[in-house]
Design a protein around this nucleic acid. Structure first.
Length: 264
DNA sequence: ATGCCTAACACCGTTAGA
């Protein structure tokens, strides 16, 4: 079973590019981030025509996450537990959706769009750290279920120096702060396996290249899109593929798909 | 220095991304 994560940077602005990749790569499950639309504007029919079931947690203009799956999605959760202090009882950013991919060997999957957090020293960075705290708390509960589980998405965290073309240039960035990296390590240490590190792990496995300053032709990339596996999923990991060629296509997203294969 | 792109929304610029 192939599970893909991809920050598409607007699903509607890039619909043909996205659908073409799904036709070619034919993942069983797709975790999408930054769909940048409300639920009603998500092109569900186009995915259904390719044989996918769809679950969406959208938002106007910003953020938005979705799951697509060849088999029906059950037990759908939209948003992390916790209100982040909002009086109405809910965090107003659409950054988390989770569901169980049904089948003979069910798999729980989440599509995650972790806050960017820049610039550091602001409320945005504090929100990022609070959000990571909420994610870890929920992840702890999910691990207690002892099921195959994949937390996939755009984590907006560069885990190690080998995951960035120039660590020095990213020292002041929210994605490479000691607190961001520490929170990511703490999440992993609950019992998760970073699929890329467990299968390939070579330096330079970048998943994002900025649109600006010729980052792509210069290979000035960073690795921020991750698939974290529960022990029951990690036992089934057979490989990870970063589809970096997608970055060189027409009208690309600034992120590329990352695909993990599990023998489920 | 801090723009360089790109997208959405509504404006002809602003906000956000990373």
């Amino acid at each position: 079973m192939k599970i893909a994560t991809w920050n598409v940077n607007s699903v509607n602005a890039r619909l043909e590019t996205v659908l073409q990749w799904f036709r070619e790569a034919a993942p069983d499950v797709g975790c999408l981030q930054e769909i940048k639309c409300v639920d009603e504007k998500f092109p569900a029919e186009a995915f259904e025509a390719l044989g996918y079931n769809v679950a969406v947690h959208g938002q106007k203009t910003y953020n938005g996450v979705a799951l697509v799956s060849k088999t029906p999605l059950e037990d759908v959760r939209k948003g992390l537990p916790g209100s982040d202090g909002h009086a109405d009882g809910a965090d107003d950013h659409a950054r988390y959706i989770e569901a169980v991919v049904s089948g003979p060997n069910p798999l729980r999957v989440a599509s995650i769009y972790l806050p960017n957090g820049n610039p550091i020293g602001t409320e945005k960075f504090a929100y990022k750290l609070r959000w990571m705290e909420r994610l870890s708390s929920h992840a702890r509960d999910l691990l207690d279920l002892e099921e195959p589980l994949v937390l996939a998405g755009d984590y907006n965290v560069i885990p190690e120096a080998q995951d960035v073309y120039s660590p020095a240039e990213w020292m002041g960035d929210a994605l490479f702060q000691p607190q961001s990296r520490g929170a990511f390590r703490a999440l992993k240490w609950l019992g998760f396996t970073d699929a890329y590190m467990a299968s390939d792990g070579a330096p330079g496995g970048y998943t994002f290249w900025d649109y600006q300053a010729g980052a792509w032709p210069k290979n000035h990339g960073i690795r921020i899109d991750h698939l974290l596996l529960s022990p029951q999923a990690a036992d089934r990991l057979s490989g990870v593929d970063i589809h970096r060629d997608v970055r060189g296509r027409e009208k690309p997203s600034d992120h590329v798909p990352v695909v993990a294969e599990l023998t489920l």
